[in-house]
Nucleic acid binder design. Structure first.
Length: 424
RNA sequence: GGAGAGAUGGCUGAGUGGUCGAAGGCGCUCGACUGGAAAUCGAGUAGACGGGUAAAAACCUGUCUCGAGGGUUCAAAUCCCUCUCUCUCCGCCA
């Protein structure tokens, strides 16, 4: 959520930045309503002031044994007027809030300007894509042949965009989760959290999924509950409506969760394989920081995610998303894209964002910079560290051999119970 | 699912209709004491939204907030209704 005071103070600047993100604004409407709101507020507060004073006066008079009937009738009448004005105000404030909740975050000044993903800027590359002396197969082909991925039976159970992992495939998924969590906990200093996979609508609004992106999520029928689309939601909302101690910041949190996405708009893209699923696993990184440290922490978080791929020996590049490609809540985002030999291109495997105070404002997450100092909104960051299913796909494609077997990356072998190659 | 109890500031905990944004304690800040510290003593210490007001800060001032929403009343933390959550007991269950 943007700061209403900021919108009022420099609407042109905000409109400009929103335009960079490719969204229409509705700012004029907001400003008009804000104007009316302040007028109403002054009027109703005056009446309330009268009522408060008169009520006290009545109390005094009654104690003195008088019956101030005239004054009581007067206050009662004012009470009616107050009720009407309050109703008007509430309706107006509801509409303003609704509007505010649909405005995306502003891009940070360091974000490259552009319209879509073709304008993203490559920041760095790591690793050399392997030269194959045979035609590399797609991961779904490899997985099916090795009988570790089963798409047909998944369709029988759940329909399209689900996968059954079997044998070494299931083990590989679990190994990756453990490997990633161990790395972030033991080496990068994150605290491991195991959150609920279902959360309420307040959480979804707090991190920005609601109200705009309700169609992308699975909602439980007849309940105010959603399946988490990412662990970012429960992790960030852990501290909703709290005032944190500055000394405790930054908080580093990591969690494995399954992630559930309806993604109504994505039909036709990545229909084969495990790149785009209704259910997938992810190890997520979340940081809650002060306003001063958030950009430094974004760089560190991105490096933490990159290290997963380095240790797995998977070539990748880091891309700075341009203004037009930024997500709703993000002020700045780095995508990490892993090399996929069959596609012969880099594909997103992690996305690390600084949301600044956008989510903190929605979720009301604050901190006290020092005793005596006023509370401030925290900055929140989130990043995949990293998407597990896509990592499986990347390992299958990058580590495949001419006979269709797949070598297990060295760091994973202990997690695979000593298994070094997946063969038929 | 059934029965009961509860939800108050950063934390704890009093408050059953009026001068209560809220006693006491803890914590924290400042001051005194001290060579310094501890202990002790004194003072201070919620948030949001407006107005004065202008870029901000400081200051003054108003309104709202005692789980959420509604109601009664001149006046609600306090009385009534609905909901949410927590705890205890019973049932069921991995």
């Amino acid at each position: 959520m943007l700061d209403p005071k900021q919108i009022r103070a420099n609407p042109e600047m905000i409109a400009q930045k929103l335009a960079l993100k490719g969204t229409g604004t509705g700012l004029e409407e907001f400003l008009n309503m804000d104007e009316v709101r302040r007028r109403l507020l002054v009027a109703v507060e005056e009446k309330k002031n009268f009522r408060n004073r008169a009520s006290q006066e009545i109390g005094r008079l009654k104690k003195a044994g008088e019956e101030p009937e005239g004054l009581m009738a007067q206050v009662k009448a004012v009470g009616q007027e107050i009720k009407e004005l309050d109703d008007q105000l509430r309706a107006l404030e509801d509409r303003m809030k609704e509007l505010l909740l649909t405005l995306p975050n502003l891009p940070h000044d360091s974000v490259p300007i552009g319209a879509g993903d073709e304008d993203n800027v490559e920041v760095r590359r790591w690793g050399e894509p392997r030269e194959f002396d045979f035609s590399p197969l797609p991961h779904w082909e490899l997985g099916t042949r090795l009988d570790i991925l089963d798409f047909e039976r998944a369709a029988k159970l759940s329909g399209a965009r689900f996968t059954v992992y079997k044998g070494a495939g299931a083990r590989l998924e679990r190994a990756l989760v453990n490997f990633m969590l161990d790395l972030h906990v033991e080496k990068h200093g994150y605290r491991e959290i195991f959150p609920p996979f279902m959360v309420n609508a307040d959480c979804m609004q707090g991190t920005g999924q609601l109200p705009k992106f309700a169609d992308d999520m699975f909602k439980l029928e007849g309940r105010d509950m959603y399946l988490v689309p990412t662990a970012e939601v429960p992790l960030t909302n852990l501290y909703r409506d709290e005032i944190l101690n500055a000394a405790d910041l930054p908080l580093y949190l990591t969690a494995y969760t399954a992630c559930f996405r309806a993604e109504a708009g994505s039909h036709g893209r990545d229909t084969r394989g495990i790149i785009r699923q209704h259910q997938f696993n992810k190890v997520e990184l979340v940081k809650i920081t002060t306003r001063e440290q958030s950009y430094e922490e974004l760089e560190k978080m991105t490096a933490d995610a990159e290290e997963v791929l380095k240790l797995l020996g998977l070539p990748y590049r880091v891309v700075a998303l341009c203004t037009g490609d930024l997500g709703f809540s993000a002020a700045k985002t780095y995508d990490i894209e892993v090399w996929m030999p069959y596609y012969s291109e880099y594909r997103e495997i992690s996305s690390c964002s600084n949301c600044e105070d956008f989510q903190a404002r929605r979720a009301n997450i604050r901190y006290r910079p020092g005793n005596k100092e006023k509370v401030q909104y925290c900055h929140t960051l989130n990043g995949s560290g990293v998407a597990v299913g896509r990592t499986v796909a990347a390992i299958l494609e990058n580590y495949q051999q001419a006979d269709g077997s797949v070598v297990i990356p060295k760091v994973l072998v202990p997690y695979m119970g000593g298994l070094e190659v997946i063969t038929m």
